Structure formats: C-alpha cells, structure tokens
Amino acid sequence: MQRMGMGLVGPGFVAAHHVDAVRRLGFVDVVALAGSSDASARKKADAWGVPKAYGRYQDLVADRDVQVVHVTTPNFLHDPVIRAALGARKHVVSDKPLAVSSAEARGLWQAAKDAGVVHAVTFNYRGNPLVQQARDMIAKGELGPVHYVHGQYLQDWLLEPTDYSWRLEPDKGGQSSALGDIGSHWCDLAEYVVGARIQSVLSDLTTVISTRMKPESTAEAFATAGTQTRREVAITSEDLASVLLRFDNGARGA
C-alpha cells in the first residue's frame, strides 16, 4: 500500500489519540503538526516525534508531504481549517462536531464533495465490537423492526463548578455544549446502529451549573484543576439535554 503523509492541526488532548491511531495503521507517516504558535507546535512535535512544526495551519496545508489533514482544533476553527485543506485537495479527518452550525456543516460537505477527496468525522464509537454486532443483527432483521431507540451519554467531567473548558464558551464551542459536543456522538451511534436517519427532534436544554470558576490560564481537556487563579463567569450553554427523536423509518427515540 502506498504510504501517506498526515498533518494535524490543533495538537491538544484528543490529537495524541489521532497520532497514535494513524501510526498503528502502518502506512501513514505523521509528518507535521500545526499549533497556535511556532513554539507550542514545536514542543508537541518534539514530544510526539513529529519532524515538522508550524505556527500557522495554512503552512501545514501547503506542505507537499501532507496528503491528509486531521483537524482537532476547538470547534469554531473547524470551518476555516477544513476549507483550506479541501481547497488544497487534501483528504480531511475532522474531530466532532464537524461545525458549530448546520449551515457550516452543509457548506463543508459540499466543499468536500466538490474537492473529490475522502472526508470523515471521528465518530469513533462505531468501531466498538458490541456496536458492530448490534448494527449487524438489526440489519439482518434478527431483532425484528426497530420501534424505539433509547439511550444516554453521562459524563462526570464538568460536574463541579470549578471544572472548566472552552467547550462551554459559545464563541469557541458553538451554541450547544452537552448536545453538540457529546450528544453528537449519541445521535450518530443511534443512526449507525439502527440504520435510519434522525428526521425531527424536540429538545429541552438546561444549564444546571450557571456559574463556573474559569482559570486564568488555559489547560487541555480533562486536566486537573490545580491551584491556579480563577474568576467567576456566567455559563449560557447547556450541560443537560433531554431529546425526543423521530427517525425516517418511523421509529421513535429518546
């Protein structure tokens, strides 16, 4: 199989898992990283054994050794980074959610289609063996028709008022937090297993912790609170979402 060069934009928490996963494939070389500065990118590149480091994603996209771009930036940067990669006819693997609005997502899908490249979003739960078995059993009709789909996605991350993430900030993570960030995983999983598309929704979005203590300096996802200085900020994005669903095969869900 022909070897492929991979470049990654946004070397934060989840990026390490992308690098590890593609290296396990055996035919992909991680050749470049792009971060928020030359120094931060170089630091991560040295730590992960990546030869090239860029402080601008545009330079990574222009690198001829990069054939596929993995995008693991905060959500609001997905659109410009992905559009740049597609404009250069590079394959794209984006972390979820793909975009911060349906209009952005449709635009990226059309741009990828026009570019004629491989494009994917990392809904990684699809690869779980139990998920694969459930999907196969339903597709073969072994369980009969699906009438109702029920599930939940619970996390204790962000459980305390001292827990904080850029995902809570609408200008970075998008207007939706719980539903857009981890709910997107659940919705994709439901569609994938059932083999039907969600057609309509009725949601109740709630902000349980309306005030949080934001650290003065940034930290990667799931980092410990530490002893750094914090300030009180108001939270408007939801941390609890309840959703009723209708699928295009007539099934209901919640």
Rank of each mutant, 00 (worst) to 15 (best):
M1T: 13
M1L: 12
Q2T: 12
Q2R: 11
M4T: 14
M4C: 10
G5S: 06
L8A: 10
L8T: 04
V9D: 03
P11D: 11
P11F: 15
A15N: 05
A16M: 10
H17R: 13
V19K: 05
V19W: 01
A21L: 11
R23C: 08
F27S: 15
F27Q: 14
V31D: 03
L33T: 07
G35S: 14
G35C: 12
S37K: 11
S37Q: 11
D38V: 14
S40D: 11
A41I: 07
A41P: 01
A41T: 06
K44R: 15
A45N: 05
D46V: 14
A47Y: 03
A47W: 04
A47Q: 12
A47M: 07
A47P: 00
G49M: 06
V50R: 03
R56P: 01
Y57F: 14
D63F: 01
D63T: 04
D63A: 02
R64N: 14
V71P: 01
T72N: 06
T73M: 02
P74M: 08
P74C: 05
N75C: 11
F76K: 05
L77C: 06
I82E: 02
R83L: 08
A84N: 08
A88S: 04
R89T: 08
R89N: 11
H91I: 02
K96Y: 01
P97L: 11
L98E: 01
A103S: 09
R106V: 14
G107D: 13
G107E: 06
W109V: 14
W109A: 15
Q110N: 10
H119Y: 15
N124G: 14
N124Y: 11
N124W: 10
Y125G: 04
R126N: 04
R126W: 03
N128V: 13
P129K: 09
P129D: 10
L130Y: 12
L130D: 15
Q132Y: 07
Q132D: 08
K140H: 12
G141Y: 05
E142W: 12
E142G: 03
P145F: 10
V146H: 07
H147P: 06
Y148E: 12
V149E: 02
H150G: 14
H150M: 12
G151S: 06
Y153F: 12
L154C: 08
D156A: 04
W157L: 08
W157C: 08
L159M: 10
E160Y: 05
P161C: 12
R167H: 11
G174I: 01
S176N: 12
S177E: 05
G180F: 03
D181S: 12
I182Q: 02
H185K: 06
D188K: 07
E191S: 11
G195F: 05
Q199G: 09
S200E: 13
V201M: 15
I209M: 03
R212K: 14
M213R: 12
K214L: 08
P215T: 15
E216V: 14
S217T: 15
A223P: 13
A223K: 13
A234V: 09
D239I: 00
A241T: 01
S242D: 08
V243Y: 00
V243R: 01
L245Y: 07
N249Q: 04
N249E: 05
A254S: 12
A254G: 13
